[in-house]
Amino acid sequence: MAAGTGSGSTVSAIFSPVRLWLLLPSWIVIGFFLLLPVLLMLTYSFLTKEFRGGVIWEFSLSAYDQFLFDRGLFGDEPPVIKWTYINIFIRSILQATGATILCLLIGFPTAYFIATRPMQSRTMWLFLITIPYWVNLLIRTVSMKFLIRDTGPLNELFLNIGLIDAPLHVINTNFAVQLGLFYSYLPFMVLPIYASVERYNFAFSEVASDLYASKITILWSIILPVVKPGIIAGSILVFVPSLGAFLAPDLLGGAKTFMIGSLIEDQFKGNAGNWPFGAAASMILLSLVLVVLMFYARAQERDQT
C-alpha cells in the first residue's frame, strides 16, 4: 500500500493542473457513499432506539451504555460492567488471532518454499496458491462446512480407515470457525511473506553458514527479522477481515458463537432491532481496526527510516 503514495522517480507533475478534476470523482463517490454514511452511523450510535427497529432523533448514550453496562433485566439496577458484548469482542479477537496463527504456521513455510524455487516454477506455485481465492468466499465456506460435518467425507474417511471410532464433532464449534477463517484468508498471509522472502538476499545465509551458524539459527536470527514486514502485513490482512467476519461464524459456528459480525447483523436483519446499538458496535469495531492499522503504519514508517 505504501507504493501508492508515489515515492518513486516516476512521479511527475505533468497532469497537476487537471489533478483536481482527475481526483474529484473518486473523492466524491467514496466521500459521499462511504465516508458520509460512516459519519451518519456515528451519529446513529448516539440516538435513541425506536421500539421494534429504527431510530428516534434524540440524543442518547444508551447504545454505548448498553454495550458496557448491565443495568439488570429491567434497566433499573445500579450499573455493573457487562461482559457479554465485551466478551463477544474478546472472542472475536481470539478467533481472529487463532486464525492468524494458523495461517502463519502454514503460510510461512509455504511462502518461504515458493520463494526458494527456481524462477519459472515460482509463478506456477503462486498461481496455484491464489486460484482458490478467486472462488467465491461463500462457496469456499460452504465446501468447508460440507467437508467437516459429522456425516461428511472427512469423518467418513477417518472412520473407514479406522483412525477414529466416532465422528469428530468439529462443526458448530469455535475451532470450526477458526478453520473457516483460516481457509478464507490463507492466501493473504502467503503472498506478502513471499514478497518479503523474495527480496531476501540468500548470500547472508551463506555467510552465516560459513560462520558455523545452524540452519535454525539462520532462520530465527537472520531471516525472520528481515521478513518481518511481510509477516506483519500478512497478519494484518488476515486479522482484520477475520475480526468482522460473518459467514464463517454463521455457517460453521452454528450461529451460536456470536462474533462481532453476527452481533451487528442481528441488530439490523435479525430479531434484535436495535439500530443505535448496532451502529455503536460497528463504530467500536471500526475503531479497533483503525488502531491496528495505525500501529502498522507507524511500524512501516519506522522500518523505512
Binding site: F51, L73, F74, G75, T84, Y85, N87, I88, F258, L263, D266, G270, N271, A272, G273, N274
Partner: peptide, 17 residues
C-alpha cells in the same frame, strides 16, 4: 406490551450473544 417486550428483547439478546 412495550415494557415487557423490551425485557423480552433483552433476554433474547443475552441468549443470542
Amino acid at each position: 406490551d412495550q415494557t415487557t417486550q423490551e425485557v423480552y428483547d433483552q433476554i433474547w439478546t443475552r441468549l443470542r450473544s
